[in-house]
Each structure stands twice: as C-alpha cells, then as structure tokens.
Amino acid sequence: MKYLALLRKEIRECLPWVLLAAGILFVFGFQMLLNNPIQSIIFPYHLDDQANETIESAYLFRPSTVASVGSILLFISLCLGAALSIRQFWFPSFTRTWAFLLHRNITRTAVFLVKITAAVLGFVLSILSIWTLLFLYSVFAADYSPPPMPHVWLEGLFLISQGLVVYFASSLSSVLTAKWYTTRLFPVIFVFMSLYFCFYPKTPALNFLCTGLSMLILALPLWQEFRNRQF
C-alpha cells in the first residue's frame, strides 16, 4: 500500500512533463507523417555514370516511411529523461522536501525503486504509446508504401531508451554531493559517450546491449549514492 501510495505521488508529480512530452510528440509526429508525401520519400535513382546507367548502390538504401519522426522521437526522449530526473531528484533538494519523503517508515531502496518505476511508466505511457500509435498509423492507415518493417518499431524503442540513459545520468548527477564543476558533471559527459557507443554498433542487438550496459553503469552508482547520501 505504501509502495502504491508513493508510486501515485511520483506519477502525479511527473504527470505534467509526461503529458507535455506525449502532446508534443503526438502533434509534431503526426504533422511530420502527414506532411511527408510519397514523392518526398521516393527520389529518383542516382545514376553513377550517365553513359552506363549504373545505379550507385548506396542510393538504393532508402529511409523508412516513418524516418521523419525519428529525430523528434529521440529529442523528446532525451528531454523527458532530463525533465523527469530534475523533477524527481533535484527539485526536492530545491524545495527542501527530501526530509518529508525519506523520514518515513519506508526504506530508501523502496523510494528509489518507486522513482525509477514512475519514470519508466512515464516513458511507456507517453512516448512509447504515441510512437506505437504513429508506427501503426504508418503501417495500416497512412498512404505510404512500402509500410515500415516491424524492426523499425524496435528501433524506435531503442531511441526512446536513450532517454532513460539520460534520466539515470542526470539523476546520478543530482544525487552526487561533489561540486557541480567536478565529478558531478561526469555522468552528464558520460551520456554523450554513451550515445556515441550505443549508436555505433551495426547490429540492433549490440545497440540494445550497449544501452543496457550504459543504464547499468549509471543505475547502480545512483542506487548506492541515493542509499548513502544524507539529505
């Protein structure tokens, strides 16, 4: 019961950001899909050599019909990750409300898990659900052919998961007690390295593995810091 009450409280606090992200993705995502007529996707063959009429192979690899949504999906995921971590881990320090939350008959690990659960739920309810809607629209309803392949949905999930990496990094940075210009800044720098390494592999399985590894590297120290810190 205590756990559920805490979860409700965290979700209530995160809800404005979650709804804002969902709204922006819904409006801009659908606008981009609708304003992306078929002609803009199908560009003519690039002839390598006019005399031979050979097609340059790289030009045959075309972006998916939902490609235009990718950038905004990634951007909103990263922003939501940062916003949720600020709301959950930095804002209570600013309003001096940590004491109300922590000095109750509940373990710090439970508080930590509730915060993580609320953030993951926020991502699932807002960005993942809207992304699934956009994907289903482009598969079944939109006037695009060929429809995107099923693995594109997973690629969207991968982009969304980058937001969680940002969430863990900025949360760790909020919880650390060092000066802001010293090691406190390191988790934020680590996010940029992580983004590079997560996008680098050529196979989706490795992309997800790198993302999982980045989350683990950030989440465990975050848990330890949260347990040991004196608020």
């Binding site: 690899f61 972006p63 995107p148 050529k202």
Partner: peptide, 26 residues
C-alpha cells in the same frame, strides 16, 4: 570489365536518428 568485390552493407542498415534504411527497387 566492371569488378565487384564483397561489400559490407551493414553500415547502411545501422540505426540512426532516422532509423535504419531499406534496400528498395522501384
């Protein structure tokens, strides 16, 4: 003659901010 060597097309299939690309003939 035109020479063809083995080519690794995985780079074109790599996930980017615009997702991976598809090999499509029209």
């Amino acid at each position: 003659a035109d020479e063809l060597y083995k080519e690794d097309w995985n780079g074109c299939l790599r996930i980017s901010q615009n997702f991976s690309r598809d090999l499509i003939f029209t």
